[in-house]
């Protein structure tokens, strides 16, 4: 009888002495999904990642052994546009958090969609600004306590949460838009399929691929990692329904009005 290794660290994972994330943060699981999808689709040699500012920047470039560039805050889709137009054969993706994509970089993101770029965006939604100490983000749930909304987010003053996946699905240049989580094993597999599809749309030249991840932030939510899973399934998924909002194989690029 012998022992055979059947599942372990992906070879795209960089060797680090310890993890850069807080205990229970889902970003490491999302980095695993990205590493596995890049190897399965065999484009890790020509992948270029662009990370925004925040925990997404701290995590993905340090965890994944592919080309990465860090961008000014919120400008990852703009830099990705340049990268994709200079290197059309490359597979260009951005990894952005909710402060990066939803707040300061919403203009750059919307303009990338309007220009019809063929990029892939991984949006990490943890309902607050994790790096700077848990301030209120555009994706914070109504009534959710953060350091800048100590009595809970009041929609009367602060508005309603940003639904980025539905917003992307509404744009004509987007070929794939989905919202997934990694809080159960089944959802992990669905998330991997969604990321695969989003990259495949770019490789086939169909259009923009967008995947939103609901992820946990145990220190800033003030919950244990296990209770964060309950919070995601009860509170986050009530506000942000999971699913594939758009999946088309062909976009009409003809000039005829």
């Amino acid at each position: 009888m012998s022992l055979e290794m059947i599942y372990g660290t992906p070879s795209l994972k960089t060797q680090m002495p310890r993890s850069v994330f807080c205990p229970g943060c889902h970003y490491g699981t999302i980095a695993r999904i990205l590493a596995e999808v890049m190897q399965e689709l065999e484009f890790d040699g020509r992948a270029i990642g662009l990370a925004g500012v925040g925990c997404s920047f701290a995590g993905m470039p340090l965890n994944l052994d592919v080309d990465f560039t860090s961008c000014p805050h919120g400008r990852a889709p703009a830099m990705a546009t340049a990268m994709k137009r200079i290197h059309p054969e490359a597979v260009v993706f951005t990894v952005q958090g909710d402060g990066d994509l939803g707040a300061i970089g919403l203009g750059c993101f919307m303009n990338a969609l309007l220009r019809g770029e063929k990029l892939t965006t991984i949006f990490l939604n943890n309902a607050n600004y994790g790096t700077t100490g848990g301030q209120m983000a555009p994706t914070t749930l109504p009534g959710m306590r953060t350091t800048t909304s100590p009595t809970g987010r009041d929609p009367q003053n602060s508005g309603f949460p940003l639904h980025a996946a539905e917003l992307a699905a509404f744009m004509p240049s987007v070929a794939y838009a989905a919202r997934v989580t990694v809080h159960t094993p089944a959802n992990f597999q669905k998330a991997k399929k969604a990321v695969t599809a989003a990259f495949q749309k770019q490789i086939d030249g169909t259009g923009y691929g967008f995947v939103e991840f609901l992820s946990a932030c145990p220190p800033n939510w003030g919950l244990t990692p296990t209770k964060c899973l309950t919070f995601i399934s009860e509170r986050m998924m009530a506000e942000y329904p999971l699913g594939v909002f758009k999946d088309v194989d062909h976009l009409d690029y003809s000039k005829v009005p």
């Binding site: 372990g8 993890s19 994330f21 695993r32 965890n63």
Partner: peptide
Amino acid sequence: CAWLCPDF
């Protein structure tokens, strides 16, 4: 357990 371990 290995799929969902955030720390590899």
